[in-house]
Simulated scan of single mutants.
Amino acid sequence: MSTVSVVTLAKGRPAHLRNVLLGLARQTRPPAELIVAVMQDAPYDLPEVPFPVRQILVPGRELPLAAARNRGVAAACGDDVVFLDVDCIPAPSLVADYARGLAALDGLLMGEVLHLPERATAGDWRYADLDAVAERHSDRRGPPASGIEICNDYRCFWSLNYAIRRATFLATGGFDERYTGYGGEDTDFGKLLATRGIPIAWMKGARAYHQYHPHHMPPVHHLDSVVRNAELFASKWGYRTMGHWLYAFRVMGLIDDTPDRPIRILRRPDAGDLALTGQQSHQPYTNSASVIRTLEARQVEGAAMASGVPAPATA
């Protein structure tokens, strides 16, 4: 039977991390260990759990997400490695589901993700309570009805909740550590897998519950790193990634992303940009598509006002 290490990346959010540990302690198949790649100056004060926990300090001025994932795998002892973001609580069968899936497919597997509203994990939470309020992200593809389904577009890789055989990960060379801050490093890794012929797939099960935290989408609060990482991706692969975010930034007047020229940041996000893109307390997740629709409607309205022709009514 294969052994399974779990790797999580953490900066701040100690309550979220404690819920991750609590979820791992409730697994039908306990992990061999948890590796916490700590992206802050000091390790966490963590509760006792019935499996080994190791904390590895990963220095970096900005979020060193790529480096943290690589360090986590390098330190892991398991045959399989499950990656969970620090805000993702594993369902009871997550470790067992991934072990079964990776025994069937040597590739990268993505489990289910449901999003929780604010205060869903307050107090002594139960899985039945989480299931009662959790929602699936409207912008994201859901799991197959059963089994494993191959995705033939590397851009489907979502780094919130996934697993891969450790040997397969190491054979790829891992994530490109030149990506720092937020955005692009996971799409780059997906592109790398595609070039190596390593399948990316969705699977039924391996569910994780994404815990609420205030966020912006599109991520205007990470404008600089998104722009920088999009340019890095283009230097490697010949075209930019994160196109929907760059499009939103352009419509907002934040950037000039004219093709064949370096992206220029025209201005910093202001209070209106933050209000438009920010997650509200009643929302379990943020939604780029709805923000883009709002921006496009404003464009149409502005053009109509400038021309004196009434904008078409919207449903």
Rank of each mutant, 00 (worst) to 15 (best):
His16Thr: 13
Pro310Gln: 03
His16Met: 09
Pro144Asp: 04
Pro199Tyr: 01
Gly272Lys: 13
Leu94Ala: 01
Ser235Gly: 14
Tyr127Ser: 13
Tyr162His: 09
Tyr182Lys: 06
Gln211Arg: 11
His221Thr: 15
Phe189Gly: 00
Ala75Cys: 03
Asp257Gln: 05
Ala128Tyr: 05
His16Ser: 14
Ala201Asp: 06
Leu223His: 00
Thr294Ile: 04
Met203Ala: 04
Glu301His: 05
Val58Phe: 12
Trp125Lys: 11
Thr195Trp: 12
Arg261Asp: 07
Met203Cys: 09
Ala25Phe: 07
His215Ala: 11
Ala208Pro: 10
Leu63Cys: 09
Val95Lys: 10
Pro43Leu: 02
Tyr209His: 00
Val4Asn: 05
Leu232Glu: 01
Gly308Pro: 15
Pro92Asp: 00
Asp270Glu: 15
Ala297Ser: 12
Met252Thr: 08
Phe169Tyr: 10
Tyr127Cys: 13
Asp97Ser: 07
Asp80Pro: 07
Asp85Thr: 06
Leu63Asn: 14
Pro50Ser: 10
Leu232Ser: 00
Ala275Tyr: 03
Phe83Arg: 07
Gly12Gln: 08
Ala234Gln: 11
Asp260Met: 14
Trp202Cys: 06
Glu296Asn: 03
Pro92Glu: 02
Thr187Gln: 10
His244Pro: 01
Val220Gln: 04
Tyr179Ser: 01
His16Glu: 01
Pro143Phe: 04
Arg69Glu: 13
Leu170Ser: 08
Leu84Asp: 04
Arg261Cys: 03
Ala248Ile: 02
Leu65Ile: 05
Leu130Arg: 01
Asp153Cys: 09
Leu295Asn: 02
Pro14Trp: 09
Gln55Ser: 06
Met305Glu: 14
Ile56Ala: 00
Asp188Asn: 14
Phe51Val: 03
Asp85Tyr: 09
Glu231Cys: 09
Ala248Pro: 05
Pro144His: 08
Ala208Gln: 01
Gly302Ile: 12
Ala75Glu: 03
Ala194Pro: 15
Ser93Asp: 12
Pro117Cys: 07
Pro269Lys: 03
Val220Ala: 07
Tyr44Gln: 03
Ala306Thr: 02
Asp87Phe: 02
Gln280Met: 06
Ile164Tyr: 01
Pro218Cys: 10
Leu65Pro: 11
Ala303Leu: 14
Val36Arg: 07
Ala103Tyr: 02
Leu21Pro: 09
Gly190Met: 12
Gly272Asp: 12
Gly243Leu: 08
Ile148Gln: 00
Ala306Lys: 11
Met203Gly: 09
Ala315Gly: 13
Tyr154Pro: 13
Arg298Val: 06
Ala208Asn: 13
Ser225Lys: 01
Gln299Cys: 07
His137Glu: 01
